[in-house]
Design a protein around this nucleic acid. Structure first.
Lengths: 335, 335
DNA sequence: CCCACGGAAGACATCGTTGTCAACGGCGTC
DNA sequence: GACGCCGTTGACAACGATGTCTTCCGTGGG
């Protein structure tokens, strides 16, 4: 309650005074070092308990030069289930290494990403997992040279050589479109985010590969890019359906777009086939059939964290790119 | 790449040597303290840039005795959207106070919760937001006396007097059941988690209040507790519908139970009314009408963080309980 | 010409802890 | 009885930074 006249937090030297020993002896006891007579150790432990002493991990880390037992995770937005799933997976791996996780959101702002990066460096995190917002990460180089371990997640870094873990975007999109083609569709509406986004670019490339593989020409009128939210996605679907020679199927580039497409198709009761990249929560309960290009999001986080701790543990091999596979899943009620 | 023969991280004294000044002068420059001739300051900044110096925030905090600019959040599982929404809201408020957030999962294990608590204390976090797993928090008292600020979230603490932020569980449940009663339902199946869970207990109390208010007797045969996952919820719904004199409506105690109930009702094509506590993602797209007792989950996190930073800022008022209101929302397609 | 004065810069102690090394006492050994 | 050894314990420095205080210098007034 009253924050003014509370007592000072006890230090190791308070404990030493209370137990009538030197600070070094206290240090030995609380760190389980050998060479302390049991009787003394007991007195020290009693003093520790009585004073409610807790070792200051920051001071301890400073003196001993040990790693800080902290890693950082820079993502776009923790409120997004995709990122929170990753954060949970990373935290779980970190716990296995007795390491804490500081998660920060870059809000897709490269400048903020840089600031967050600098702050985490000042805290002397042992490593960082970064979902890059910016497109140039040369600024991380000096820290990497000073021993900061980094793993880039979901998108590869540019301007620096470092580990990365990404989804098999092109192959997944190609498989999704190939599936629609195999079902006989020849006019497939493609709706995706801006090609400035790595994943959107890769997925669109996969779409082209699949079309080419089936000898179906790529038709610009059937491709809509720069769609960033469900509302816009719904309007894009509407526009294509209202156009001349409408598509009989849609391929959507991420789950926000997929949700927008579902809303518009359900609203019209239209039965166009729909395949979307990314699975999402409760996709199985959607009121119409759809197919998703799914992958294990936790695996993304897990693989990145595993890579990071391998580096922290001393792995000095050449940077690697880990690719997480995708698979087609039938979703929605009635599928 | 090569982690062995990299150079040591430069310290303030390396910078001082490079600039030909004392460490104190460097300290003054990097902290923007007055009293340094511009020419010298420039030399220092040049050295900082050249060496890639970054102040060690841990050492700085140790010496200056400032707060660590870190808070902790103890939740059950970051992968759960409810908790990740809270974490995101807390992180956002924290950023406004130039504070980092360490999130840890207790996995609903009171022993782990205590361990996590201790670890965060050793890191000298300025404050903690705790979603309690255990039922006794007297063990936090000594830290509270040493100045640790705490706010309990979603469930009040026991064994210690501290701020808390909770949902208006009883009133929300009462409103949900009253709504079903107003629609003419007299046999309402109630499915909830174990009464050992605070929220389940409060919500069940709200249910009884509403029934009593309408003069409808509380019938044990229509109440099923200790339901902890969608599968069990579906089976509970099935059992009630298959019983004699089945309910015409269901009230479900949380969103996992609501989802299980929807699955079973959809499977049977049964048209019982359904009202559930907690909104959930995509509830609007559920293939049947339902009503949810919703509330602003972000507001929970936001309020808790605001309370915590008020405490950190010196607020020494009597501990308060903040109650976040609920409201009924019609959800599902066709509602 | 001397001294008080004020601004700039540095020397030194310090935060809480751990690493290094020296000191101490008791013991066995020659 | 002197020596060396070993198991204990403590004194002191150091980690990387900042707070306090002193020193130094140039200036202006008497």
């Amino acid at each position: 309650m009253d924050g003014q006249d509370r007592r000072r937090r006890p230090t190791i030297s308070d404990v030493a005074a209370a137990a009538g020993v030197s600070v070094k002896t206290v240090s030995r006891v609380i760190n389980g070092e050998p060479g302390v007579r049991p009787a003394l150790a007991e007195r020290v432990l009693a003093a520790v308990a009585e004073l409610g002493f807790r070792r200051n991990a920051l001071a301890s880390g400073l003196r001993s030069g040990r790693a800080s037992a902290t890693i950082g995770l820079i993502i776009e937005d923790l409120a997004n289930p995709f990122y929170s799933t990753i954060a949970a997976a990373v935290a779980k791996v970190a716990r296995g290494h007795d390491t804490h996780l500081i998660t920060v959101s870059s809000e897709e702002d490269p400048a903020l990403e840089r600031r967050q990066f600098a702050e985490l460096c000042q805290r002397r995190v042992d490593g960082l997992i970064i979902v890059p917002a910016g497109s140039d990460h040369a600024y991380t180089r000096s820290e990497a040279e000073l021993g900061l371990k980094m793993v880039f997640l979901d998108r590869p870094p540019s301007g620096i050589l470092a580990d990365s873990v990404v989804v098999d975007n092109a192959a997944g999109a190609a498989a999704g479109v190939a599936d629609l083609l195999a079902a006989g569709h020849r006019r497939i509406g493609v709706i995706t985010d801006s090609p400035s986004v790595y994943t959107a670019r890769e997925r669109l490339a996969g779409v082209r590969t699949a079309l080419a593989g089936a000898g179906v020409p790529y038709d610009d009128a059937l491709v809509r890019t720069d769609v960033a939210d469900p509302g816009r996605a719904a309007r894009a679907v509407a526009a294509m359906l209202d156009g001349a020679d409408p598509p009989t199927a849609f391929f959507t580039g991420n789950n926000r777009i997929t949700v927008g497409a579902i809303q518009e198709l359900c609203r019209r009761g239209h039965d166009a086939a729909l395949t979307g990249f990314d699975d999402f929560e409760l996709s199985a309960l959607m009121p119409r059939p759809l197919t998703v290009v799914g992958y294990d999001v936790r695996e993304l986080g897990r693989a990145a964290a595993a890579r990071l701790f391998a580096r922290i543990g001393g792995d000095a091999s050449w940077p690697s790119e880990t690719v997480v596979p995708t698979r087609l899943e039938r979703r929605g009620i009635g599928s």
